[in-house]
Design a binder for these strands. Structure first.
Lengths: 250, 250
DNA sequence: CGCTGTGAAGTTCTTCACAGCA
DNA sequence: TGCTGTGAAGAACTTCACAGCG
């Protein structure tokens, strides 16, 4: 990626891995709150979040000592602290570029507008789409207006939901306009200057990772025959190992 | 996450972190191939993939010694080797549950059917959606047929694109029917038995991670209640190290 | 010479295990 | 007593730096 995570000296230096889990904890905490649960132990919270309790406690300890020994964590208080740490106590206007199937899905995604984020605009380059309403009260604007929207509404987070070919161009314009955080759904590696944060969501990469594990499970260690020309044999060093099948081990 | 992947002793034990990057390399390699490039160096490939070259070389070394010293890697040969490692030399039928905005976006996603994956079915619980054609030749089926589809078509990868409330139920049914790999787009932590692999794609988590970094960037100035201030981030003098980042020349 | 492949050093993240407080 | 918070051990991953081969 393009950032040094916790190298910054002034900041508290919360590990990147912890940051990535805080949103999960936060979601679980909201669920607890809705159910009227006032206090949770690290064990309970960890189970609901799908992590181990030591990890959860260490994660939370980076924010401060917000638990009570012998009792657990106060749900509401922790919600507030985690939200604050993540910067969700302020509202983040977001611009979505690309109003295709995905852009529309995003615009209609409830959790979007819910906590901390607000869709400032959905833009598209296709004239036939501009002007149509794709979500309640959300009319697609022209992507010519990227700079204008970013500047006027103080957008610092952009979502790219365009075809791959258009992504880098859109990215460049977003960055030039002042956006410093980008969520990229297009299947390309974006090139950005230092100081801009990019996260990618890539369906096909996720599927390929799943395919790898699925293959390993079915363990059809194919003889790798169809080798074609090139450096024929190469005799893969330690290929043999047939042992690793059962992933279980309870 | 429940069990460890490369804890298996006999297996080749390719690090999980490496697996997660192979699809990126593969994509870049395809791009090279399309452009008629026959050979790439680790430096070039790494730049295009947005990683550092030592990491790329180490990653590839886990697959075997497929490069030529003093020259680089043969593009076609490497494409084949990476594909084989990821299990993409076989075809994976995938079932998508949920034909809402997101399900439709997925069904229309080109890269889906392209390499290694095939949509076996798109299912939904809503009777008014069942029977409609959401993509070329893709008619939505009833989610009553989950078990049937999985069994008949030998599906081992399922994609959950339902509302949060329905996700766990769908997941349980997929798993019971024999699916062992799940890609979850619903904002919930899925509970699965050991041996089932779940990957999640969660928009709001990604946004929250971006918000954290965006906040930190703007916090460089005023503490507390500091309104957004795009563009301020460039300061970060101590971040120096960012010299030769993944900035590829265009 | 140029570039790969890799031992070794360095860094980050996870897990253990328990001291210590409510 | 029960549970948090944390030092310390361990595992995973990254980066360095260079031997070695084409």
């Amino acid at each position: 990626m393009s950032r040094r995570p916790n190298a910054a000296p002034g900041s508290q230096g919360i590990p990147e891995a912890t940051i990535a889990r805080l949103p999960v904890y936060l979601r679980v905490l909201y669920t607890c709150a809705e159910q009227g649960i006032a206090t949770v132990s690290s064990e309970e919270l960890a189970a609901a979040a799908g992590v181990n309790s030591a990890k959860l406690r260490k994660d939370l300890s980076h924010l401060g000592s917000y638990g009570t020994r012998g009792v657990g964590y106060d749900v509401d208080y922790l919600v507030y602290q985690v939200s604050r740490e993540l910067g969700l106590t302020q509202d983040w206007p977001v611009v979505i570029v690309g109003a295709g199937n995905l852009g529309r899905a995003l615009a209609n995604y409830g959790g979007f507008a819910s906590r901390g984020f607000r869709i400032a605009a959905v833009l598209d380059a296709d004239r036939t789409v501009v002007g149509t309403e794709i979500a309640a009260g959300q009319v697609v604007g022209s992507s010519d207006a990227i700079e204008e929207v970013v500047a006027e509404r103080g957008v610092s987070i952009g979502v790219i939901a365009t075809p791959a070919a258009a992504a880098q161009g859109v990215c460049d314009r977003l960055v030039a306009a002042g956006v410093t955080s980008i969520l990229n759904f297009a299947p390309v590696v974006l090139n950005v200057p230092a100081g801009v944060d990019v996260r990618k969501v890539d369906l096909s990469i996720e599927l390929q990772i799943l395919a790898f594990h699925a293959q390993r499970r079915s363990d059809v260690r194919v003889p790798a025959s169809g080798k074609r020309q090139y450096r024929g044999g190469v005799a893969l060093p330690a290929l043999a190992g047939s042992a690793g099948e059962s992933v279980t081990a309870p």
